Amino acid sequence: MEAAIGVVGGSGLYSMAALQNVQEIKVDTPFGEPSDVLIYGTIDHTPVVFLARHGRSHHLLPSEVPYRANIYAMKSLGVKYIISASAVGSLREQIKPLDMVIPHQFIDRTKNRIATFFGQGIVAHITFADPVCLALADVLATAAESIDLGTGKVRRGGVYLCMEGPAFSTKAESHLYRSWGADVIGMTNLTEAKLAREAEIAYATLALATDYDCWHEEHDSVSVSMVIDNLHKNAINAQKIIQATVNLITANPPVSEAHTALKSAIFTDLTKVSAATLDKLGLIIKKYLQ
């Protein structure tokens, strides 16, 4: 059972109403269990795999999400494109709550996560200048622009700052991130993007603005109730956008440099690597085991 398209749902997006012929799939990986069972189904006859990033009951902190297991599980089911939906805070006046952003860049402020499949005898250095697949991001933006979002608007490009969490930013931090040129702030997507690139999966983010973080003097500082309220408002639009994106990918699968990301990235002579490590990473590197 395989699907070329995977969807990772963040806060507020724990299921996909458009999925039909749904089946739950439990996947065991060398990196532990994924956040939840993977949901296999079809959207307009196209096979799609859905995974709730924090679990369907939202029981995982951003730092507790088993990112390696999640991406590995997607890879094991044949996923070549991942659409990530994620709640974010806005760091810009012009990005209002309920707007949608398709970021092209990330800044990493995480510190307690493993963000690579490699090690234990294999060294690989992926290129990451463009951390999302720009071809897939363009398809996602085109799909978003085709949907009536009500008061929300779509922004192509931008910088997503990925913080550790789970606490929201201090005001000093929020102003610092603005001075760095960051546009939105979240707690999950950069880790996924790195691992997806290592797994040679094209990855793009649909960032759903829920609040103005805490920098905006004329708006209340971010609260859980505010975020949840706007998440519910965003969920329907996000699902419409994802459905439209699936149809566009099916009609014309984008060519992605991510699909050959390891071609020049592996520094280690694989003939010298232990059998145990080769077995653990076989799914990721199998086409380079010549």
Rank of each mutant, 00 (worst) to 15 (best):
A52H: 04
M226H: 11
V139I: 14
T268A: 11
G12Y: 01
P254T: 03
I43A: 09
D220M: 08
I82P: 05
N21D: 07
V273W: 02
I95S: 04
C133T: 06
V8L: 11
I82E: 05
S15P: 11
G121W: 01
R178W: 08
K171F: 12
R178I: 05
V49D: 08
L13V: 13
V224G: 02
R113C: 04
A196G: 10
P47T: 00
E173S: 09
A276N: 08
T205G: 10
R109A: 02
I71V: 15
T188S: 02
F117L: 06
A204F: 04
V88A: 09
K240C: 11
S146N: 10
F267C: 08
A85M: 00
A251V: 10
G32N: 03
E257S: 14
A182L: 03
L77A: 10
L98N: 05
L149Y: 11
V222R: 01
G55M: 04
Q20G: 07
E198S: 13
A69V: 09
D269V: 01
A73M: 01
Q23F: 06
F118R: 01
I201L: 13
I43E: 12
L270E: 07
I102D: 07
A18Q: 15
I126K: 13
T210A: 12
V184Q: 07
A202E: 09
I241N: 12
S76E: 08
E200K: 15
Y72D: 09
M74Q: 14
K280I: 09
K26E: 10
L38H: 12
H232N: 09
G152L: 05
S84H: 03
S256L: 04
Q94F: 04
D279M: 11
D108R: 11
P103E: 13
L161K: 15
D211K: 04
G6H: 07
E198F: 13
V139Y: 13
H175Q: 13
G165S: 04
H216R: 14
F106K: 00
I107A: 14
P131F: 06
K75D: 09
T260M: 11
R109E: 03
E173G: 06
T188W: 00
A235K: 03
N252A: 12
M74G: 14
K263N: 10
P30M: 00
V123W: 13
T170E: 13
E24K: 13
T116G: 01
S169E: 12
A202T: 08
D36K: 03
Y40G: 06
A182S: 07
V139P: 08
